[in-house]
Structures are given as structure tokens and as C-alpha cells.
Design a protein around this nucleic acid. Structure first.
Lengths: 329, 329
DNA sequence: GACCCTAGCTAAACCGGTTTATCTCCGGCT
DNA sequence: AGCCGGAGATAAACCGGTTTAGCTAGGGTC
């Protein structure tokens, strides 16, 4: 099966290629009668312009890119990204080019390659690092980009983010109001910018706080919890940096015979089905809407708008059965 | 920033464009010394061929496509697809074009568009319908495609699938061996091919079976369970078509004071973190590996191999706390 | 010495669009 | 009548590759 090209239309309508191009793109230079005839012929032939050919003439690639750095198998458990992607899609008419790689170096190389290959019009940057080389790269390449979830301003790039600092503070205040004093935190990867923000907020609002590093896996959540619960000064509340670690932590508590929430309160960052079924108190945000907002920002930048910083609404604490007053209060 | 083109290389190496093309693609027609020089120059200039331009000369688009039909918000809970995608990526060197649409019509249109636009070299077809128009479309377009998860043979397309019939039979046999006789099934969408297969297997191995339709959401799982548990002939075991419905069902049982597994056994199709934490017995398969296998099949077809049917290993039943001997046995 | 073959390279066409330069025709103005 | 301007169209260049046809020089054969 052969698809019709602009040449076929030109021949069928009895005009030149150039005239067809002008007619189809709604530009001046052809009479209304000719335009009508061309459109008629084009639709009757089921014509679709080839993005490929169009992109060649330095026009758009009609796609945006997203690179995720993950050990591939770990990805399936992270509902967050899927929600995010779904949200992005809802606001984009173009396609999303998605690739999962296993190292930061590959990620950088891939962005560069997509740019060189003229494959995308813009990209999303997620999992922002403390001083992220990607920010500079995008600026140097002149590739439109939106930083997703990296609080604050990043060079000349657009940015969509939630206030991790304020969110962490609100969680701690909630726990404090329930009488908790020894509060622990199971953090995510320390190389990520939002981990640092949350660390800072945690440190400044908790007096007697302990932070244990995790890596978002159930294993690390379980290990951290076991360490915390067997320490001398056992915390009365633990805040986890994601849902998977929190659920794993709740199970460890159950195994060790530590009653939740009587002896231990648990709060998860990022709500999900997992938290809902585990009845875990969680910091909930609308990830779908967040993705949609990011997509809107990227589309705007691609269309030439000057980059903006959009702050998302503050995540809301959904209180469920896993948190309660501190023991002895 | 301007990226180097084949012309720049040709000028720098003192040869023609054609010679550069031959040299870079490892084809004969240039001397080894020239080839070496060209490669040298190309790498020193950081040259990357433009896929766009290359695709224009009827070569490959270096990307494959996947369209998901979902209400966008529902997507985030389905770990299955994310696992699948992660697995696909692990076996593909090219990029994945992903788009979520909300109707079958849009899906068809999108596949057609991608084909017309020369955007993909091949596509994955998931959620196969009973007599799916996509199969014919792909054949007509001559677009390489792999049917993922649709048991059996589909026209001239390659296919990667698990034996739903045998799997369902194994689940029922397991329950029967525990003494269950009144077994119910909460099915998925009846328009999907695998639902029909499972229905058939269920009907032929269960004497006193009831089937309630669901749509993979927690709500439908809960509603179906409520209906089943309040019926006159209450089943002693329920098999759910996915994890989300099963977990919702387990909660309804708890709410109604029906003890699991003493009074009711629950089995979920497709294992996930959700099942693990809910201690649900589940039919487990390696979705990641499944995706990888599908990707291999698609790559093979794109490279010209004749389409093959690959049967995946039979899903394995992971017995957890939600299933046990039937009451009164 | 005439002939043929082949390796190695170049020039040019082509893919399917967009864009620019050019050309023609027609009406209005002085 | 002569000049100008603009509308409507076309031919041709261009984007960055691939591919084909054609050219040249050198070596082998009879």
C-alpha cells in the first residue's frame, strides 16, 4: 500500500507542489477556489503529511521526550511515573518518546542524541540532581525543556514543582500536634534535589530527628525500619519518602510486634493504591494533574513562550489508620 | 548550536557526500584508508546522523509504537503495563513512541497516522479484542506488528502470549483440590480476547460457577464481590481477573465479616506489590520478561524474519494467605 | 596493443515536504 | 499610453541523508 504524497495531490488537483503546501497550511498565496479544490482532493485521497519530511525542513518533530533512569525491573512498582505520564499525555497532542536507561551518562547521551537526530521538540527532566548537568546541557543545546519536580529556579529553564519544604513541615507539624517528639525519616536517594529539600525541612522542624537513607525499594524500607525500631531511642513516628518503603516498613513493624498506630505512627510520601489498601496516612498530590501541568508548560516553551516557574498546589495530608497520638500522651 | 551534517564531514575529509554515507554505513565502495579517515573526522566532529533525514529515504524510523486505550487516570494503577513497557525497553535499542487515547477509534486512527507519517517501524498491539480490526489493518498497511497477550494465531502477525486457558484451569484445579465447589469469577472486560478464553476455561472446569463482569477498577471489584457474597448460594472461592479488583474484593469481605481464607478463598490474576502486601494468592507471571520477549519478536519481524508465535511460560500460582481449604472440609 | 573488469570515487537524482525567487496577468493611477 | 503593484501561480532550491549511474585509473587476459 502506497501512501499519497504532496506530489500526487498536486497532480490530481492540477497545480504545483508549492501551491498544495500553501493551501494545506492555510497560508496566503493561493486563491480560495484553488485552496478548496486542493483540500477536497487531499481529503479524498486520505492524505497525511509525513512528519519525517516536514521535520527535515527544520520544522517540528511533533514529539517530546522523557528519559527515566531506573533499574528496569524496579519501574513497574512506581505508580508515580505512570500517573505522571498519563497526565502529560492528556495535555499533549504530540507523541511522547519514552526510554528507560540505567545510568545518568546514558541519559545525557540520549538527550543529546535525540536533539542531534531532530527527534524531539522538547524534553521533560525528572529526578533532578543537586547540581544537575542536564540543565546546562539543555541551555547549551537550545532544546526546550521543563524541569519536573525540582523545586525552584533552574537556569533559564521552565520548571513545575511542588513545595517539598512546606510539605515536609506540614507532616512534621501534624505529628508534633499528636504529641510525637522522636520522629524519624526514611529518605530517598540523597543525590536527588527533593531529598535535600526534605532533609533540610525535616532537620529544621524536628529537634530529636534521625534520618536513614533508602532507595525507594521495599527492601531498603524494611531494612531502615528494622534498624530504627531496634535502636535504643526508638522513634514514635516514621516518615517515608515513598509509598513502597512505607508499606514495607508497616510490615516490618507488624512482624516485630510493634503496634501501629498505638506504638508507632507511619506516614508515606505520595499516595497510591498501596497506601489506600494499607490504610496508611499519606501525603497526597494529584500526580496526574501535575503531569498535565508539566506538559502545558513544555508546550508553551516549545511554542516560544518565555519559560515560567509553576508551583503546584501543596500536597495534602490524608490521615488514615497508620497515624495517631504518640504513646504515653 | 549547529549540528554537523554529512556535508560538513565530506568537506572536512575531502570526499563526496556519497562516499561518506558508504563509509559510515560500513558498505563497500570505499577504500579502507578513506573509510578510516571519514570515521575519524566524523567522530571528531561529534557527528550523528539525523534519523529524520534517514527515514525520509525510506529507511527506518528507529522507533516502535504502542497505543494504550484507557481512561487516562486509570492508567497509574496498572502496574502491568509499566512492567511490560520496562521489559520491552530492555530488549530494544530504538525508542518507544507511547500514546494514551480514550477510544478504539482514536487508536486505529493513530496507528494509521503513525504509519502514514513514517514515524514507526512497527507496533505492539495489546488488549486484543475478540475479532480485532487492528489485525487486518496492520496486514493491509504492511506495518510490522506483534500481538501481545492475545492467545493464538492472528492472521499473518507475530504473536506473544501466555496460555490463559491452561492457567485458568490450573487455578480452578487448585481450588478444587482444596475442596471448593462453588467457585465464582470476577471477569474483566468481555470484549477482550483473553477474557473470553478465561471464561471458556472457567466454564468447562467449574460445575457450579458464577461469572460477574468487572472492568478492572477497584469499584467494580468491590461491587461484584458484594453481590456475590450477599447472594443465596454464596461462593467459597472467588477468582479475580486482576490484582486491583482482588484487593478491593478482599476488603469488602473484611467489611462484611467474611473471614478469608476460612470462609472465602481469594485468588488474583497477575501478581504485584499489591498482592504481596495483601498476602493474596496470585497467578504470577514475569511481565517484564514477557515484554522483553514481545520486543524481541517485534525486532525480528522488522528485520524481516517471518512472524512467529511465541508461547510464554505458564503463569505460576503463588499461594499466600488468601486461599485455603473450603469451609466444612 | 586492444579489450575487459573492477575497485574507488563523484555527480546527481531522489525521498516529501517547505520556502524563496521568479514569472504572468490584470487592474488602477497619472 | 505607460508605469506600478499585487494577487496567484510555478519552478527550483533546500533540508540531510541514501542510492544509482557514470567516470577514471589500474591490472589481468588473449
Amino acid at each position: 500500500m502506497k501512501r499519497p504524497t504532496i506530489k500526487d495531490i498536486a497532480a490530481a488537483a492540477g497545480v504545483s507542489k508549492g501551491a498544495v503546501s500553501l493551501a494545506l497550511n492555510g497560508r496566503s498565496g493561493v486563491s480560495e477556489s484553488t485552496r478548496a479544490r486542493v483540500l477536497e482532493v487531499a481529503s479524498s485521497l486520505g492524505y497525511r503529511p509525513s512528519v519525517t519530511a516536514r521535520a527535515l525542513s527544520s520544522a517540528s518533530a511533533d514529539a517530546v521526550g522523557l528519559v527515566l533512569v531506573r533499574p528496569p525491573r524496579a519501574l513497574g512498582d512506581e505508580a508515580f511515573f505512570f500517573q505522571l505520564i498519563a497526565g502529560m499525555q492528556s495535555e499533549m497532542s504530540c507523541a511522547l518518546l519514552l526510554q528507560v536507561v540505567s545510568s545518568r551518562e546514558e541519559e545525557i547521551a540520549l538527550y543529546q542524541r535525540w536533539w542531534a537526530e531532530h527527534r524531539v521538540d522538547g524534553v521533560f527532566l525528572v529526578d533532578l540532581l543537586v547540581s544537575d548537568p542536564r540543565v546546562e546541557l539543555m541551555t547549551a543545546l537550545g532544546l526546550p525543556a521543563v524541569v519536573v519536580g525540582g523545586a525552584g529556579h533552574h537556569g533559564s529553564l521552565a520548571s513545575v514543582w511542588a513545595d517539598d519544604y512546606a510539605a515536609m513541615t506540614s507532616v512534621v507539624e501534624h505529628l508534633k500536634s499528636l504529641g510525637h517528639r522522636r520522629i524519624a525519616r526514611v529518605a530517598g536517594l540523597s543525590s536527588l534535589l527533593h531529598t535535600v529539600r526534605r532533609d533540610a525541612a525535616f532537620a529544621s522542624s524536628v529537634v530529636d530527628g534521625v534520618v536513614v537513607a533508602g532507595d525507594y525499594t521495599a527492601e531498603s524500607g524494611a531494612a531502615a525500619t528494622r534498624a530504627l525500631l531496634s535502636s535504643d531511642a526508638r522513634p514514635t513516628a516514621i516518615v517515608y519518602d515513598n509509598d513502597v518503603m512505607a508499606v514495607a516498613g508497616a510490615e516490618v513493624a507488624a512482624d516485630l510486634g510493634v503496634a501501629v498506630p498505638q506504638e508507632l505512627s507511619i506516614v508515606a510520601w505520595d499516595d497510591s493504591v498501596l497506601c489506600q489498601h494499607g490504610r496508611l496516612t499519606a501525603l497526597s498530590r494529584d500526580t496526574f494533574a501535575f503531569g498535565a501541568r508539566a506538559a502545558r508548560a513544555l508546550v508553551a516553551v516549545i511554542e516560544g513562550a518565555s519559560p515560567t516557574d509553576v508551583e503546584d498546589v501543596l500536597p495534602e495530608l490524608v490521615v488514615r489508620a497508620s497515624s495517631g497520638v504518640a504513646p504515653g500522651v
